[in-house]
Design a binder for these strands. Structure first.
Lengths: 193, 193, 193, 193
DNA sequence: CATGAATGAGAGTTCATTCAT
DNA sequence: GATGAATGAACTCTCATTCAT
């Protein structure tokens, strides 16, 4: 595949991404993507065989590009509490962003392709989140900022709460106030006053 | 609609329920339900106009029948901790039930029919859950069983966690161990040792 | 068929008549008639096998009931011109009546059941009209009221014009002025000034 | 839509035209046209969305192609009587053509889409016919060929008669003799002997 | 007689997918 | 590589007609 083709493929993925953000996963047809991309039906099939393949490659591209805005913003001087606050702030931003989000599409996809495989993207992300938070909490305990008897439990708790809020945001809406209250509750459970 | 029709309608709803449990919401066609019920195409239309109508009536029937297995099992002598434990045990059972569940269908439906309306079923259930848990925690505090500075936050925390675990159960699976650990974490955050 | 049945049949025909007036012939389904009559589906089939049969019986009933409002209003003293004027006035009334009319249904039916048979209802009516008008014109000539070299041609001319106006009334509308002008033209072609 | 598509579209319209001539308007389904054209179900939908759209485009094509066989045959030397005779001869030919005619379909369509709008095709055609005939009659009067006190009335009379005969031709048939007699009657009403 | 539930044929419509150009 | 016309399977929905009660 030549240079040109690579670019076109990327163009299709970016355009398809917008389509998935708007319509979720199951609602999206090859026709939708063809029309959004303004290419020919046959043209799309040169690059992709199905909406599933396109969606998975959109997710891959996403993963590759995300590359932690989060870690980039951490400096040496930051305390564990600072970092956790930063992390939660990022999550909150994500949660409240109503439109530009693949959340619905991702859940729709994984509902239909549930797998307990270690490679399941959602699972990897969840596990990774728990690990990072656990380390962070342990670091906070070590530095005397946090008190917590079960860092693993606390880390999981945060991840489950975030997952729960993400769903609620997409099904019946969630207000900034609700998010703030819960994040505050979480922080206060950890911080030594 | 006579007595007989009422029974048939119920039969269709029960059969459709199984179909929704198996295939989620969006995958289900009138044809699927017709075939599952072993009735004619036109026959189904005598009772329902669309899969959406069927689904909503399935949910209604569910709500009517659920009628709190939970509250039925509470006796006068139970302490707040007992009741909370019972509640969490019920939730755990629900969570781990892999097949017999409308969870996926419900989320799929509400992804597509997101509404911040007070009448949104998911919202009502969430709010009701928070209210019940808050009362319970306050009762536990009053009886000296629990310690908690923010009963509302704790109640919300539990509901979000349950929501999060429900999703995880349906997307990448969740083990009994994971559930137990998190429920334990929650209980220990409340109980005075 | 008992007395009661005869009444019910008549009731159905009268109700169906209204339906045909509203929707024409082809648009009417057995369901429409069942609903308009507020009887059961099976019930209708006890009396009629198809919309066609119903429609034909509606026409028969009509023919039986029409029984010439026209001839009833003619008295001995009326001149030919008086009678012709009366006839055209009746036709005009019929033409301008927008709603209560089976015209569209009748044409739709006979488009689909064209027959050059002498018994074709439209043909019988046309021929009868020509005959009556011809006699009338001849009577007018005899009495010195009219001048006409081809009474048969004039009679046919009137009938064709009425037919043409009936169609126009049902397809693009026709104003009272248009009708009056044409009827005046016809009368002036006959009357000796 | 490329050159090829334009041809195919025309092919479909021509084929559909035949179908409408055979079955009228309301009886024609997308399936009928698909089968007549020997194309696939989906193929037809690439070009047209409904039988109504197809029908209207058939009418447009017709209007575009008709382009007055009539006016083409008029020469400078023709007298008004010659032209009127030619016109009526054309109409007679049209009237007696039993099969190759959209008449029934057109009336069926306009029964269901009655509109007093100036743009109603039938109305435009009627008005245009009246105008042309009126001019012609006035020309004939000026040249001493015709005698007529109400050229407008005479013109309308001719158009209504033609409309009436068209209907009769499609419902109970009309013989060449009947047409000839009536056209003769009309001509004799105008010509000075 | 009368009911109305039930059936199944058939029309409309949309899309994934292929293929000649 | 790229196009877009073409196909056909799958779904939705409506009715004429039947039949057990």
């Amino acid at each position: 595949m030549g240079e040109k083709s690579v670019q076109k493929k990327k163009y299709i993925l970016e355009t398809a991404r917008r389509v998935f953000m708007e319509k979720g996963y199951k609602n999206v047809t090859m026709k939708d993507i063809v029309e959004a991309c303004e290419i020919s039906r046959g043209g799309l099939y040169l690059y992709f065989d199905s909406t599933e393949q396109i969606f998975l490659e959109v997710l891959e591209l996403d993963a590759a590009e995300t590359d932690d805005v989060f870690t980039e913003n951490i400096t040496q001087e930051d305390t564990a509490a600072d970092i956790l606050t930063l992390f939660l702030k990022e999550q909150k931003k994500e949660l409240l962003r109503k439109k530009n989000t693949l959340t619905v599409a991702v859940y729709e996809y994984f509902f239909a392709h549930k797998s307990t495989d270690k490679n399941n993207m959602l699972r990897r992300q969840f596990d990774a989140g728990v690990r990072v938070l656990e380390k962070l909490i342990e670091a906070g305990i070590a530095s005397g900022e946090f008190y917590c008897e079960d860092p693993r439990g606390a880390a999981s708790n945060i991840m489950y709460v975030l997952e729960g809020m993400k769903i609620d945001a997409q099904t019946f809406g969630i207000t900034e106030k609700m998010v703030d209250e819960q994040l505050l509750y979480i922080m206060q459970g950890l911080i030594i006053e």
